[in-house]
């Protein structure tokens, strides 16, 4: 790895809060006035990219797909230390589900300056799917490893790493190029420095539109999405049972009686 690692971190701009307000009449979300931030899981991905660059040399490129103002997220990443920002933006890409998004991102990545490792946050806080990473890997025809919590070594074109599964921790060896997804147990993301912020302000953001990618309109945006939303609605509220107050002994009796009713004691 004499030339270092070429790392790409795809990120997403998401609403700062998930406490979304709901418009009962139109059945849509009210998004006005909600600040946009880098998806929190993506910060762990950026940090891991920066650490690998510090250790092995190379370059960290950040990539996002979204409206023109999504460039703010790229600048935030550059302020943390990323080298270059790439904005995939075109009206034709709007309304994409994970399949169309991952295809557009994969095709964009092929237009960039090459890569050894793609690091994604394990999911976004708005969509919550965690699918775009693995789908992107399939479109790029490279292997992927989800839920990575430690990169042990990168050597001779191979990565040894650990990842969380429901029942334990697995150690794997994967060849580069590779895509991984990471969660909050992999590192502690750094804060942007003042110097980083100044650099980010001046940084050139490269734009990729569909005139660069030349993708069939049937494969991108809403038209290229295999899933469609029928409706969105507020989760149903469960009915409340009794709420008791009283002396400790009365409270304990109430719980004890309930446990007996449930036949667990």
């Amino acid at each position: 790895m004499s030339e270092g690692l070429k790392i790409i971190v795809p990120i997403k701009q998401v609403p700062e809060t998930t406490e979304v307000e709901f418009d009962e009449e139109t059945g849509t979300l009210k998004r006005e006035g909600v600040a946009a931030i880098i998806n929190p899981f993506d910060e762990f991905a950026i940090e891991e990219g920066l650490r690998l660059k510090e250790k092995h040399g190379g370059e960290v490129n950040v990539l996002t797909m979204g409206p023109p103002w999504a460039a703010d997220a790229l600048r935030d990443a550059i302020a943390m230390g990323a080298d270059k920002g790439w904005l995939v933006t075109d009206r034709a890409f709007a309304g994409a589900d994970t399949w169309a998004t991952s295809l557009t991102l994969a095709k964009s990545i092929e237009k960039m300056d090459g890569y050894d490792l793609i690091i994604c946050g394990l999911k976004t806080t708005d969509g919550d799917t965690g699918q775009t990473g693995p789908e992107m890997a399939e479109h790029l025809n490279i292997p992927h490893v989800c839920y990575v919590n430690e990169i042990i070594d990168v050597k001779d074109g191979k990565v040894v790493l650990k990842r969380n599964l429901d029942d334990g921790v697995e150690t794997l060896e994967a060849p580069l190029p590779l895509l991984i997804t990471v969660g909050k147990d992999i590192n502690q993301p750094r804060l942007a420095t003042l110097r980083g912020r100044i650099k980010a302000k001046k940084a050139e953001i490269k734009e990729i539109t569909n005139s660069d990618l030349q993708l069939d309109p049937k494969e991108i945006g809403l038209e290229g999405s295999f899933t469609r939303v029928v409706k969105i609605f507020e989760p149903e509220q469960h009915e409340a049972g009794e709420v008791v107050e009283g002396t400790v002994e009365e409270l304990v009796d109430a719980i004890y009686q309930k446990l007996q009713e449930c036949k667990v004691i």
Partner: peptide, 15 residues
């Protein structure tokens, strides 16, 4: 499925 941290539910289909 839930989205936005469980604050909304979305019904989706694959036409």
């Amino acid at each position: 499925r839930p989205a936005y941290g469980g604050n909304i539910m979305a019904t989706i289909y694959t036409p």
